Every structure is written in structure tokens, then in C-alpha cells.
Simulated assay, not measured.
Amino acid sequence: MENSSRFFANKECEYYPCHKCDTDINCLFCYCPLYNHDCPGDYKIVDKGDRKIKSCLNCTFPHEPDNYDLVIAILKEYR
């Protein structure tokens, strides 16, 4: 699956890996397309001054190769 239309690992990136993960990280979703949506990953809502923000620090959901189809399905729901 390396560098296919469903998976790309940019191992030359200065931030790779951006999360701790047991497998190679899928960089197709480098900036999470689910940030403004309900993500099934392990995100947290944290206080940032006087507002709350979504922290994806420990979420690897969109970066896991097997989750490509589910990420696409979730995005289609929000069209």
C-alpha cells in the first residue's frame, strides 16, 4: 500500500511521525479533515484561555491506514 492513492507516508517530513503510532502514519490527512466534525478518534476538549478547543494530540485515527474508508465516509456525511 506504500504511496498508493489511499496511503502516503512522508517520512522525509521534519514532523514525521506527528503522533506516536504502532504503524506507519498515513500522511494523506496531515491536517485532519475531521477536526471540525465528530471524529471517532481519541481527541479531547481542552480549555484554551476563555474557550474550549479540540486537542488531537493523542488521536491517530485519520493517520491509521485501515481508517481511510471510514474517514471518507464521515466526510461524505457532512457534504
Rank of each mutant, 00 (worst) to 15 (best):
D42W: 08
I25Y: 09
E12Y: 10
R51A: 13
Y43N: 07
C21A: 08
Y35A: 08
H19R: 11
K44R: 13
Y35C: 04
H37C: 04
F29P: 02
Y31F: 15
D42R: 07
D22L: 11
C56V: 03
K48M: 15
K52C: 11
I53M: 12
K44L: 13
V46K: 13
C32G: 00
F29D: 00
D38T: 07
K54D: 05
N58R: 07
L57I: 11
L57W: 12
H37V: 05
C13F: 15
C59S: 09
Y16S: 04
P17D: 03
C39T: 00
D22C: 07
K52P: 03
C32N: 01
C56W: 02
D38Y: 14
L28T: 05
K20E: 12
C18D: 06
T60M: 08
D24K: 05
F61R: 04
K52A: 12
T23I: 04
K44V: 05
K54C: 14
N36K: 08
H37W: 13
D47S: 14
K52W: 15
C21I: 07
S55V: 00
L34P: 00
I53W: 11
T60G: 10
H19L: 11
P33K: 01
C39E: 05
I25F: 12
K44F: 15
K52G: 05
G49T: 03
D42M: 10
D24V: 04
C18W: 09
P40T: 04
Y16Q: 03
K54G: 06
K52Q: 14
E14I: 04
T60I: 09
L57R: 14
P40Y: 05
